[in-house]
Computed example of a mutant assay.
Amino acid sequence: MMLRLSVAVLLLLPFALWCAYAQSPLVGITLVKNTTAKELGAYCLDGSLPAYQFSKGFGSGASNWLLHIEGGGWCNDVKSCLERATTRIGSSSYMTENVFSGILSNNQSLNPDFYNWNRVMLRYCDGASFAGNSMYQNGNSSLYFRGQKIWQAIISDLLPQGLAHAEKALLSGCSAGGLAVFLHCDNFSRFLPGSATVKCISDAGFFLRRVNVAKSEMIRTLYHDVVSLQGVEQNLNQNCTSSQIDPKQCFFPQYFLSYIKTPIFILNTAYDTWQFYNVLVPSSADPGGVWNSCKKNLTTCTDSQIQTLQDFRLDMLNATNSFYKSSTSGGMFINSCFAHCQTQHQETWFAANSPRMQNKTIAEAVGDWYFERNETKLIDCPYPCGSTCQY
């Protein structure tokens, strides 16, 4: 998702937040060095150079680094990838500068723990959560499936700029970027000094393998096609792939979460709206539109529909239960809001009306976990619980 906010959205923000956004500087696009890209073979879908945005740290945060991976779904066939290659999530030619907010904000009052760190947005232009390594060519049509190489190229660009000497580091990401965090968390820690405090946070990246309301596993088919098309399998967790009958399902975090060694924080809503609309009740699974009203307004959901949503929540909790019980270094914030991505939006990250559990905002919970001020494993009660959610 882009962080750019329209004028209409700005006008709806509380006055204090509006002022903060108005004072935040635009962060420009930095293209990966051509020599680095050429050496690694790191290119966006259309063959353009991959890119990132970098806001330099200052003061006590000058030696600390926060890398945030942009989201934007996936492409699972040549047609959808060719279409994607003509957009900002398939080509750096269409990327524009924007304002950093939420976990990337440089405003201490809006982002108290990370505001003065070196903050980087890794722009997404491959369509496989920075994990592919393949290429398609047919006549005049070419597609570079080089997400893994893009990941390596951006890190290679940042290491000499200070990342190689980081004292503290946090890898974060939202949606498809949140999935990329799971995929790259351990690899990220290997780039950094052994003395550094390195942790990861995945926001809305815990995509469940689950049947939809029509009893079809469309999400499994989607991921299988993404992995096959873009050459992802070779870059999946080897402990996972060697233990599964179908190695491609190791694109789902629930199958390889237990193998991640670096401390990781799972931030997800139990009713993630992207998964609600696209995994649980995609339009193709509801041709009669029985769910249309419920999707638009939760108060119109039938008892049966609410029960289906509660079953989805339980599946989310069951998939993370072992992590919740056994991880001594991990953290969790599973709230009952209907939302998708909560770190990069100021109104959900840290604001007066942000979602809370045990009276802690998401920013406070993440900060407590990262700096070990408090153990943070919070799970909200079922909907309609969550009085601080903006349903």
Rank of each mutant, 00 (worst) to 15 (best):
R209V: 03
Q307P: 09
S242W: 03
Q358T: 12
F114C: 04
L110M: 13
W65V: 11
E372D: 13
T262G: 02
D225F: 13
T388I: 14
N237R: 07
F114W: 11
P193N: 06
L170Q: 01
L378N: 07
V211Y: 14
S93R: 14
R84T: 07
A285S: 15
N237V: 08
R190W: 00
G173Y: 09
A16H: 05
S195P: 02
K261G: 00
L122A: 07
T96G: 01
L179S: 09
Q234M: 11
S242Y: 09
I260Q: 00
N106P: 07
N111I: 14
L236Y: 04
S129D: 06
E97T: 14
L31G: 01
A363S: 15
K149H: 08
L143A: 04
S55T: 12
N278F: 12
N212C: 13
H224D: 09
Q249V: 15
T328K: 11
E70M: 10
M2T: 14
L314S: 15
I264M: 07
N318W: 12
S6D: 03
G57F: 11
N118A: 10
N278P: 08
V181A: 09
Y124P: 00
D157C: 10
A169R: 06
Q310I: 14
G90V: 06
V27W: 02
Y259D: 02
I69H: 04
S101P: 00
A204Y: 09
F145H: 01
A16W: 05
G147T: 05
D286F: 14
A339T: 10
F145D: 00
N268K: 06
V279G: 01
L257V: 15
F256W: 08
A22C: 01
C44P: 02
G73P: 03
R88G: 01
F58V: 09
P112D: 07
A51R: 03
Y52T: 08
S91P: 06
L208R: 08
Y370F: 15
Y52Q: 00
C19D: 00
S202F: 13
G57M: 03
L163Q: 02
R313K: 13
D46R: 02
S141T: 10
N140F: 05
F265W: 04
G331I: 12
V213K: 05
G41P: 04
L82D: 01
F130N: 07
A270T: 11
P384S: 13
T361A: 07
Y21A: 00
V99H: 10
H340A: 06
Q244K: 14
V78P: 04
V120H: 10
K295Q: 13
S387E: 08
K56E: 03
S156T: 15
L170G: 06
K325S: 08
A22V: 08
S322R: 13
I103L: 10
I219L: 15
M218P: 00
Q344K: 01
L12K: 14
Y43H: 12
A16V: 14
G173H: 11
I260V: 14
L10E: 05
D246V: 15
K296L: 12
Y223K: 05
T86S: 10
F182M: 01
N187C: 04
K56D: 00
A37V: 10
Y259E: 04
T273W: 04
E70L: 02
V281Y: 05
A166Q: 03
R88F: 14
G162W: 10
